[in-house]
Design a protein around this nucleic acid. Structure first.
Ligand code: NAD
Ligand code: NAD
Lengths: 209, 209
DNA sequence: ATAACAATGTTAATAAATTAACATAAAAAT
DNA sequence: ATTTTTATGTTAATTTATTAACATTGTTAT
């Protein structure tokens, strides 16, 4: 069920929820499709279409119930039992991420970090214990870690991905600038900030011409 | 010229170049479309199509000249005079980014950071001077800064974006989880790591079912 | 009461992105 | 020499994503 949602819809659902949570905090109970659209810089039709795909029905003229919609999105994209996550490489970026995620989403719990620096191993960072990369296999199995976020130096990207795969990881989010190879049964998402910046720079240039 | 390149092609060109630079370092002079494809987890046809769009012609049976292709991609996506970039908010993520970009792309130069913390203002970080946010308008104009990377706390996202726009910024890369509004003539790119992680988690869950 | 309005939900149309098909040609094998 | 192989470049087909069109229906205004 809900297996055939477009990839882009999944991304947007996550974004909608993020915005909706802010609305909820402010005490807003209902929201119109065009309000969500404005926040996300997309069209209201797009929002309604996405919500149609997940079978959510709002109230005519009143819009969508913020809380209900948050819950439904959760039902669709979250796993009921939650998902345990590990950070590979507790350097600048790893630390920034741990900090950012801390207490953000109960469904996605960062339960372990890994590093090779003896000064870091054994310590905790914002409540996340740092283990030796040598123990990766054991810890990942023990803690039932399903997803790994890679923030190791680029030169260690491939080796780390291999280790993760061997330990039975199910998904990898790779922030290393080095693309890695994983088998088909492991979901891989790669992101590089330079690409985003170069894209912005390109369109700035184009707009100038 | 080259204004009508698909957005996705722009992203991939940036990625191709990243991979090609690694090849160049290793001394590799030529590369096949299927090799590039393998690295990027896409098809060879996709690669050839992208290269066709930018008018690059390889050598039959020898593939593409690594150096030439890097140069051509540079001609397409880089601005001839380079683009000056500022970081807004020199916290965990800002520092990580400065560190990462340092000396990576000569075309994209981080020439200033801004913060409101008096302990940071006046110092430099990996060679990037930190200014007071109050001086944003002046510095951006003086240094001809075209693009801003936002890494301020979410609550300051909108105010910072407004300041940037007022100072005449042309593009914004927003790493804040709060979407911001900018006029049409400012190119905006937003990215949130939670969305990426939730997407990975979703497909991990789906694959389990 | 009735008309105008403003929202949702859905189908149809369009646009963007990817993939398939294939023509071409140099290199390698026979 | 000829055939086979293996690569590029391009057009056509398909798939995916977005947008437009519109039917529907409470709500507000007249
Ligand atoms: N800093 C950024 O903003 C940024 C942005 C995008 C991508 N990246 C990439 O993310 C990665 C990390 O960046 P960073 O700035 O955090 O670097 P960093 O050097 O601060 O951190 C890397 C950490 O990984 C650890 N490490 C090294 N080898 C390891 C191994 N085999 N297993 C586990 N841990 C290991 C190091 O001890 C260190 O703590 C790099 O590949 C970088 O290119 C960084
Ligand atoms: N840390 C992450 O991995 C991560 C990931 C994604 C997004 N983010 C987002 O990026 C932002 C920064 O994250 P962080 O971990 O670096 O936070 P941080 O608190 O470490 O850094 C924020 C910095 O911004 C400065 N600041 C505050 N108000 C400012 C203003 N008005 N103008 C200029 N500077 C100002 C602060 O002094 C501080 O130095 C947050 O919005 C966070 O949600 C962080």
């Amino acid at each position: 069920m809900m297996k055939n949602l477009p990839h882009k819809t999944i991304e947007r659902l996550s974004q909608y929820r993020r915005a909706l949570l802010i609305c909820l905090e402010k005490g807003q109970t209902h929201i119109y499709s065009h309000e969500i659209a404005k926040i996300q810089h997309i069209t209201a039709v797009q929002v309604r279409r996405d919500l149609m795909l997940i079978g959510y029905t709002g109230t005519l003229r009143k819009g969508y119930n913020v809380k209900d919609l948050i819950d439904l999105i959760g039902n669709i994209i979250d796993s009921t039992e939650g998902i345990n996550v590990a950070i590979l490489g507790m350097g600048n970026l790893g630390r920034a991420l741990i900090n950012y995620f801390a207490g953000k989403r109960s469904q996605l719990k960062i339960v372990a970090g890994f590093d090779i620096n003896p000064d870091k191993i054994g310590n905790t960072m914002s409540g996340v214990p740092c283990y030796s990369s040598e123990d990766m296999n054991r810890i990942i199995k023990e803690k039932n870690i399903k997803v790994g976020i890679m923030t190791v130096p680029a030169d260690f990207a491939n080796a780390t991905a291999d280790q993760l795969v061997k330990a039975g990881i199910r998904g990898i989010l790779n922030y290393t600038p080095k693309p890695v190879n994983v088998p088909d049964n492991v979901y891989l998402e790669e992101y590089d900030m330079i690409t985003s910046l170069e894209k912005v720079a390109f369109f700035v240039k184009i707009n100038d011409e």
